[in-house]
């Protein structure tokens, strides 16, 4: 299949970017990233600079790949990361637009690569249980109901890709943050620090320059891992309880 690609090129964080157009010959068995590999090999053979895009596992779990394809973070298919998207979903002759995730808190580093370290700092603000190595009790000492474990797991499958932010008109990080809050809140081990955690993580999220959540729900629609906006409702409840119902303050 012959494709026309309109790809965002930007030399570095300080320079202005622009779309460039390329033609590429692909086949339907390739993944989207393999199609970009083909383009890059072609550029290199002409001694031109290849397109920088981030990727690693290429199986939808590491959360590294990050690009907006035809207006959708990770492309048009539901529940699919860019690396898992296959060319069989495109047609010969298509024009495909590829650009980086856009958000003030995710500056573009080069071409399609953005800096998502703000997510790390949100986790550092409280996305953990304070237990040192060696302090744990026997793993079966505290039974956890199967449904709770399953719900915690569902929230914990967030891959930290940032598509939710890219999808949101306010560039809010609520889905990501709430997934971590919910994961820990569903487990007895996580409940001890629950109130402080939610206050601190929300504060960090605001400090990083992510926007407010106004219930657009585009995040849920574009999340490749099916993280539910129910987590946002849970975060809001916990946040409310912690800020109104307790003496605690964000640190």
């Amino acid at each position: 299949m012959k494709l026309k690609l309109k790809i965002w090129r930007q030399k570095n964080q300080d320079s202005k970017g622009t779309f460039e157009t390329y033609n590429v010959e692909a086949n339907e068995h390739m993944s989207f990233l393999e199609m970009l590999d083909v383009l890059n090999e072609d550029l290199i053979s002409k001694k031109q600079e290849p397109v920088v895009f981030e990727h690693d596992c290429r199986e939808g779990i590491c959360g590294t790949c990050s690009m907006v394809i035809n207006g959708h973070p990770h492309g048009p298919n539901a529940g699919t990361t860019a690396c898992q998207l296959h060319m069989r979903y495109f047609n010969d002759g298509d024009t495909i637009t590829v650009e980086p995730f856009r958000a003030a808190a995710f500056p573009v580093m080069k071409d399609l690569a953005v800096d998502r370290s703000a997510f790390d700092r949100i986790i550092q603000a409280g996305g953990y249980i304070s237990v040192n190595t060696g302090q744990a009790v026997d793993a079966n000492a505290i039974p956890v109901e199967q449904v709770d474990a399953a719900e915690a797991f569902d929230a914990a499958t967030c891959i930290g890709c940032g598509a939710c932010v890219a999808a949101c008109p306010n560039a809010s990080a609520m889905l990501f943050t709430s997934a971590k809050v919910a994961h820990l809140a569903k487990l007895p081990q996580g409940q001890v620090e629950e109130q402080q955690r939610v206050l601190d993580m929300v504060k960090q999220m605001d400090d990083e320059g992510f926007g407010r959540c106004s219930n657009v729900t585009a995040c849920e629609a574009e999340c490749p891992k099916g993280i539910s906006i129910d987590n946002i409702a849970l975060l809001n409840r916990k946040y409310f309880a912690a800020s109104i119902g307790s003496e605690k303050q964000a640190q």
Binding site: Y128, I129, V131, T133, G134, Q135, A136, V137, D138, A139, N140, I142, P143, V144, E145, Q146, A149, A150, A152, F153, A156, H183, L184, K186, L187, Q189, G190
Partner: peptide
């Protein structure tokens, strides 16, 4: 033990173990 204490959501049986 350590992983469970950190909140790793391992699969569980009906009884919670």
């Amino acid at each position: 033990d350590q992983a469970v204490a950190q909140g790793v959501p391992f699969a569980r049986e009906y009884g919670g173990l």
